[in-house]
Write a protein that binds this DNA or RNA. Structure first.
Lengths: 333, 333
DNA sequence: CTGAAAGCGCTTACAG
DNA sequence: CTGAAAGCGCTTACAG
């Protein structure tokens, strides 16, 4: 465990000055290829690597980007994270994962700490960042991109919050003969939950079909279960548009307990394609999101913001519907 | 976007020397409480925070620990990561997540880079670290703790690979009247899959019951589905011991298609308690792993190693069975 | 094309 | 109990 070699050690070995070594590694300054080769060789022999803390101190840049997620969302975000990380790495940044509490106040404090610490040049948040916090940290050197903010500022509700698949699913169900619909949504502090609810109500109006209700289901299976369990026994065959697969799974269970056929009595659609969704009885029609591509895109956007470059083009194939057995024509019991 | 305040700024404002400010923030040196209060006040007014890069350079310590996971394993590791992160933070470390390819050679290169970069004081790997790599990086300042190594060195196969719950479930099924069992395992390059298979076969022998088969199910729902789908129609009521919830879910689907009752004709147990498992029809009996506690434990172990302290005691309540409707007495069709 | 030198913001002996 | 000073390993004007 000897001392790590420094640029000075490399310089001595290569017979050049320390600054020349630095120039070689940063690519700055015109170094002749002969000198350059000598330096690189000496560096390789010593297994030299630049000390990032020293570089960071001198340049006042950390090369770090924080990605913020709650533990819960992390469960669904492996691919998203992967996409973002790869883009960041290609851009010369190191990504640090910051998990925060789902609880508002606690999360606020932690985010504040992360932003003010100065350790990060950029922050990509997949959880809402309170406006006050954005205000308070305006003077920080950390460029913050939060997905909810992002929705507002860039009018980019066309991303993960795009509810178009929900409209497509409802139209398909209409074609199959459905005239009664029910919506169980997520938590309405999520833009995506609101977007899906809006898409539902406007599509109900446009198609001229009947809505049996719109409930806030908080993304939970319990909600799907309870709401379907307590529906009138003589309800007309209907299509449940659930905001995610959890809700849909709970609903299917309730239907099974009531002896209702799926999709005949109740057709149902989810969102997210959880691992077990394709294996439910019946398999669940749902929306697959290309989270990796989305993660990559958001990171590209953050980096472009940090460098004040023009934002990258938005990919338009981030979501697609997988049709499975939980959707079919309505049938009399 | 003004310049960040430094300890010198704080010193000026508090009317002390810069080193006094440093002493206050590191807790070193005997600073009178009056001076201390003045410094802290000035620091608060300026929103001063120590520059970590500068500190790191001076102390030659990075305060960083890398946690290594593959993207795949990340999906199951949210809680694990949370547990580890909290412990690290309490220990004064910052955790950086490093995702690596599941592909061997690529992963090797990346791990090598991470270890040799000198950016991390510790590395906690949930993927195997090749022995050659451990050898090659012996002179690095990064303390490496890999979970596979961990199994060997500390004989700690009693952790996530402990198959005891499987034995308990089989005994309970035996009490309920089951005399026919079937096992669909994971991938046998996972120690946990092997441990579960061994526990199954030895318990079959000990209880003197009949095994309808032992299959390598590669952790996949397809395996559960196919194997149950192709069982003889006149098979005796049996208990399926699936290596995880995916397999169990596929099996339940096959049983439903065959018109078999669960748990009467086929009782079934899984492992992992996936989010939808409690909402299947019937709800799935499974094993809940306290991944958060496990993650916390592994991080404690790493930090103890880094500080050459005695390792922490192993928690013994990392797994527990949740009994749900998929398990019951066998019944004639 | 290359070198000498300043300085990034800290920590920590060393004086006093 | 507090201060002056060296130095961690780099980058980057500034000379030459």
């Amino acid at each position: 465990m000897t001392r790590r070699p420094t640029s000075r050690d490399v310089a001595t070995r290569a017979g050049v000055s320390q600054s020349t070594v630095s120039f070689v590694f940063t690519g700055k300054g015109g170094i002749s290829s002969a000198t350059r080769a000598r330096v690189l060789e000496a560096a390789a022999e010593l297994h030299y690597r630049p000390n990032l803390a020293a570089r960071s101190m001198r340049t006042r840049q950390t090369g770090r980007i924080a990605v913020v997620l709650t533990t819960q969302s992390l469960l669904y975000s492996a691919a998203l994270l992967e996409g973002a990380t790869v883009v960041a790495r290609d851009g010369g940044f190191v990504v640090e994962l910051v998990t925060v509490s789902a609880e508002q106040a606690e999360r606020h404090l932690r985010l504040r700490e992360v932003i003010l610490s100065g350790e990060f040049e950029g922050l990509l948040s997949f959880v809402p960042v309170a406006p006050e916090l954005t205000e308070e940290t305006r003077s920080s050197t950390t460029v913050v991109l939060s997905l909810s903010e992002f929705d507002d500022r860039l009018h980019a509700t066309g991303q993960l919050t795009d509810a178009q698949p929900l409209v497509d699913m409802m139209e398909r169900l209409y074609e199959l003969g459905h005239r009664h619909f029910l919506h169980i949504g997520g938590s309405y502090d999520f833009p995506s939950a609101v977007a899906r609810r809006e898409a539902y109500t406007s599509t109900v109006a446009r198609l001229g079909v009947q809505s049996l209700g719109v409930h806030e289901g908080e993304w939970r299976a319990e909600a799907g279960y309870e709401i379907v369990r307590t529906l009138p026994a003589d309800v007309a065959p209907f299509a449940l548009i659930a905001a995610n697969d959890h809700i849909a799974t709970g609903a299917i269970r309730a239907a099974a307990e009531r002896g209702w056929s799926v999709p005949g009595t109740m057709s149902v659609t989810g969102w997210d394609d959880l691992p077990q969704s394709a294996w439910l009885v019946p398999p669940l029609t749902t929306v697959i999101q290309d989270r990796e591509a989305f993660g990559a895109y958001t990171m590209r956007l953050l980096i472009a913001t940090m460098r004040t470059q023009t934002p990258p083009a938005r990919p338009d194939d981030l979501q697609r519907i997988v049709w499975r057995g939980s959707v079919g024509a309505p049938s009399v019991r």
